[in-house]
Design a protein around this nucleic acid. Structure first.
Lengths: 243, 243
DNA sequence: CGCCCATCTTGATCAACGTCAAGGAACAGG
DNA sequence: CCTGTTCCTTGACGTTGATCAAGATGGGCG
């Protein structure tokens, strides 16, 4: 699609708003030019897959706008959402770095614009600019920390506590008003996917929601959630508060 | 082994056998000299802690000989073994990279020799030699892949399947004979710690062991395990084999 | 040899979660 | 407006693994 790609507007790495949030902020003009020339932009509609688990890694994906989910499936067909990705994130960098096939799938959850950069280019940039590697190092180290935390939580915490935790994470990004402890939340995910985020069945998610409502911790209606008291929610993830 | 390196003998980074297995293989002589001068060697007895979860990161630890366990505890006191570390591994690099406190503890499980390298030195080396950063990048990316795999397994697989999986992992390092499908295994861990590796209680581990014995999959006696048929064990981690 | 202590095992019980099955709600397309 | 489809909820039930409480085992040491 040459110079144009969406509704006829030129997208390039220089004006990409996501760039400063990404690892690529380490690049200088010359390197950016290389990146810009190599990238292939593509729009994805909700449900479309950016790459499949098991596919060979051919490069990395630069997330420009939208929202995508990282999904991992095991041999039995059980799947969980490993996480959500947002503009500025780089997708599929892990498989690229270790030279393995993709260990998870990425699929658009909202309409998304994502650039693809082939392995050779990324490798050139990495060798050329050490700072880029250090940026990636920080990102992947952070991700690793989060993953390890999640391993612990998935074996020690109850569904209820894990769900409370998820709500708190989503709050930071999707809470509309957070004044006196009350806040409202517009969920970016369907029930199924909420369930997949914490590795449970949709039925169990329904019941967890019902319980939280019965206990007055949170009220759900469609995709919007009302939390009347942040402290009540926080108490859900605390150890038995012996007060 | 070069200058030798056991009790009361000079240890240096040049003759360290673990070096070529580690990220530090990227260093040249000059850099090695810097590392060698900065490092502080220390012996740890089983049970001794190298660093505690929550401690600020002051640098990284280079594993020379022995065996250590990485343990993570949550607010309720539940703990799991995130993994085992061996000579050649670098410990605590994650916290160092993101500049956070240690997210887990490291404790010696066997007598171990471990060098400490302060943050300033590592930072200098990283800035000085880009290849070192790329080495770390590979390591941490690999670890992240393993962690993500484990998240999925911990929520989808049964205790039995997770235990079978653990046995297979330990097999690669500790199996004595692996000829015709039969093999024997000398476990490096006590039951408690085996349990902690897959996030279950010791009681449950006992029962899992009993079950595997009743089904003829594996026989346990103290720390040695006899697996009469590898295929039987493999079948434990497969989806319901509709054969 | 016998004792102590830690570790491991066993049993009984219970809550949590998955599974199966059925019914309801929301929504797009005709 | 109806209809099919997908998603969500609810109920009944079974299984899994945690918990609590005793015992058993085994190794180090006097």
């Amino acid at each position: 699609m040459g110079a144009c790609n969406t509704s006829s507007i030129r997208r390039d790495c220089f004006t990409c708003q996501s760039r400063d949030r990404a690892e690529w902020c380490a690049l200088n003009d010359e390197e950016l030019r290389l990146l810009d020339k190599a990238k292939v932009v593509r729009e994805y509609r909700p449900g479309e897959v950016i790459f499949h688990q098991g596919d060979p890694s051919r490069g990395v994906h630069c997330f420009e706008t939208g929202m995508v989910g990282i999904r991992k499936i095991d041999a039995d067909g059980n799947s969980i959402l490993l996480g959500l990705a947002y503009p500025g994130d780089t997708l599929g960098y892990r498989s690229f770095l270790v030279g393995e096939d993709h260990g998870a799938s990425a699929e658009a959850l909202k309409p998304s614009t994502i650039c693809f950069v082939d392995s050779a280019t990324v490798r050139t940039l990495l060798e050329h600019n050490p700072a880029l590697g250090l940026q990636f190092l920080k990102t992947v180290a952070r991700d690793l920390g989060a993953a390890e935390e999640r391993i612990l939580q998935s074996v020690t915490l109850s569904v209820r506590a894990r769900f409370a935790h998820l709500l708190l994470v989503l709050k930071d990004r999707y809470a509309t008003s957070s004044e006196d402890g009350t806040f409202e939340l517009e969920l970016p995910l369907a029930r199924q996917d909420l369930a997949a985020m914490i590795g449970i069945r949709p039925e169990t998610m329904s019941r967890a929601i019902k319980q939280l409502e019965e206990d007055g911790v949170a009220y759900f209606s469609g995709r919007s959630v009302l939390v009347p008291d942040l402290k009540r929610l926080l108490r859900e993830i605390e150890p038995e508060s012996y007060l």
